[in-house]
Design a binder for these strands. Structure first.
Length: 476
RNA sequence: GUCCCCAUCGUCUAGAGGCCCAGGACUCCACCCUUUCACGGUGGCUACGAGGGUUCGAAUCCCUCUGGGGACGCCA
């Protein structure tokens, strides 16, 4: 039977790339197996959850094109999909647990417990709830929390899809609070009740959750619900080996979008971080869907590597058609640029695609084609359009004026012949011409630049440069 | 302190007893291509944490140690 999987982020900030990888693996599994990908918002941390964060999550998921089959804005057979709107459900389930003797009301106050904990810690001991209310028969009219009656002996375990068998002694657990005094469930409880009521059959999540799994399994059991499969993915660390942070990496999806990364590249990089398929490094979205599996997920924490990320991004950029890249880069062009047709932009893109990493770079590199005059790099002008440049530039200009058709091959042939006849090498004229045409010392090939620019503008730019050089000659 | 997990080049990883004196990729370096910058190509540096077993044979299995990470909340 196809699995029902879910991604259940907490809206406490941007969508973290670690979270994206979790979402991705679940999504890939669902898409590969014809399963259902559920999006649920775990907003029970009232202090930190914000509506803005919820919006960011949706936007990021949409940009990455990780579509959800069930959840806000999609089908909602198990609505609502926000935990704060499911409070009655949690209360019901908690009551059921109490009735069945799997949970109990605890009247100890947070203050009492905190004091005891502080005391224990001061003595170098580790505090564990002593079970004060576990067997009490009176039910005073006081505020209470609900605690799970946890087995004290034996072990709780599961066959983790990526980690293998994990068993944890039950005496390590304590009677955990599952419902707060204010009726809001704790993570472990809300999560399980939702997974049960939403029919989740496979839980794929970060490795930091393995410690939550034993108590959650206990809750599944107490609820009399089938226990889903679990897959715990290793963490992603920063390049310093520590937890991924804003200082060591771009952690939010939005940052990659503004840097001009392609969604498929982000997915590819994240997929390969902690999962492998032989020696393959570059995957299309479709390949990821076809090839993803839990067996080849790594067991070790991975370090984020921006250089490799860029490499993957560049590979995806090169893999796209000029037309597609042009379409994506167009909104990134400076508004004052004059681009007559999409085809023209695609031609320009073709010349910079192997030189750029991001869409932002594409937009930047293509700028000189559509700006009249191009932006000149002063150092380049000084070096190549000075007093001595005028004769060669002039000769080149006059030669090119006669070339027809005006394409890169014909241009190159004509120029090469001319150079030979005059005992010159391309080195003598290439850089001045490059600066004249592009404003920079680094650019796509000279003849492709001319072709894309077209005859008229090529000659105009050459003329302008010649005039500039002549002026420099009279001055100095 | 107790419990859980992990351990191959700097990094991501392949590897599920012989195919491995360890393969791919990123990075770095050299060379080739070349009008510049890229792309591409070729080559190079660099790894099985340590010690014990098991075995004819171990990166692969077992044990110990060491080193990392995580948890022990009315956070998620």
């Amino acid at each position: 039977m196809a699995d029902r999987v879910r991604f259940a982020p907490s809206p406490t900030g941007y969508l973290h790339i670690g979270g994206v990888r979790t979402a991705l693996y679940n999504w890939l599994w669902a898409r590969q197996t014809g399963g259902t990908f559920v999006l649920r918002i775990e907003d029970t941390d009232l202090e930190r959850s914000t509506e803005a964060s919820v919006k960011v999550i949706f936007e990021s998921m949409r940009w990455l094109d990780l579509d959800w089959d069930e959840g806000p804005g999609a089908k909602e057979p198990h609505a609502p999909y926000f935990q704060t709107q499911r409070l009655d459900l949690y209360k019901e389930h908690a009551e059921r647990l109490i009735t069945r003797g799997h949970a109990y009301r605890c009247f100890c106050t947070k203050e009492e417990l905190d004091a005891q904990r502080a005391l224990a810690q001061a003595a170098g001991k580790f505090f564990k709830y002593p079970g004060t209310c576990r067997n009490r028969t009176d039910q005073p009219d006081k505020p209470f929390v609900v605690r799970l009656k946890t087995p004290t002996s034996g072990t709780t375990g599961w066959n983790d899809l990526v980690k293998g068998r994990i068993d944890v002694p039950n005496d390590q657990q304590q009677d955990a609070v599952i419902m707060r005094g204010n009726g809001v469930p704790l993570y472990n409880f809300g999560c399980v009740v939702d997974d049960v009521t939403m029919g989740i059959t496979l839980v794929g999540r970060g490795y930091d959750h393995v410690v939550n799994t034993p108590p959650q399994i206990m809750i599944f059991e107490a609820l009399g619900a089938p226990i889903p499969k679990f897959a715990h993915l290793p963490m992603i660390n920063g390049s310093d080996g520590k937890k991924l942070s804003k200082r060591t990496a771009a952690v939010s999806v939005g940052e990659y979008q503004t840097m001009g990364f392609l969604p498929d590249a982000v997915l590819n990089y994240l997929a390969r971080l902690g999962w492998s398929h032989g020696d393959q490094e570059v995957f299309s979205r479709q390949e990821l869907i076809e090839k993803f599996d839990w067996e080849h997920c790594g067991r070790t924490a991975a370090q984020y590597d921006f250089k490799k990320f860029q490499h993957i991004q560049a590979a995806h950029l090169r893999g796209k058609t000029n037309e597609d890249v042009a379409k994506l880069a167009r909104p990134l062009l400076k508004p004052e640029l004059v681009v007559e047709t999409d085809a023209q932009l695609a031609l320009a893109v073709d010349t910079v695609k192997t030189r750029a990493t991001t869409l932002v770079e594409v937009a930047d590199m293509v700028d000189f084609y559509f700006r009249e005059p191009p932006t000149f790099d002063e150092k380049a002008v000084e070096k190549f359009l000075g007093a001595g440049a005028e004769p060669n530039l002039g000769a080149l200009r006059d030669l090119i004026a006669e070339v027809s058709p005006f394409d890169r091959a014909t241009l190159e042939a004509a120029v090469t012949a001319w150079l030979e006849k005059n005992g010159l090498s391309l080195k003598n004229v290439a850089q001045p011409a490059r600066v004249a045409l592009t404003g920079k010392t680094q650019s796509p090939g000279l003849f492709e630049v001319m072709e894309v620019l077209g005859k008229a503008r090529t000659l105009a730019r050459l003329d302008a440069a010649r005039a500039r050089a002549a002026q420099a000659a009279t001055k100095g």
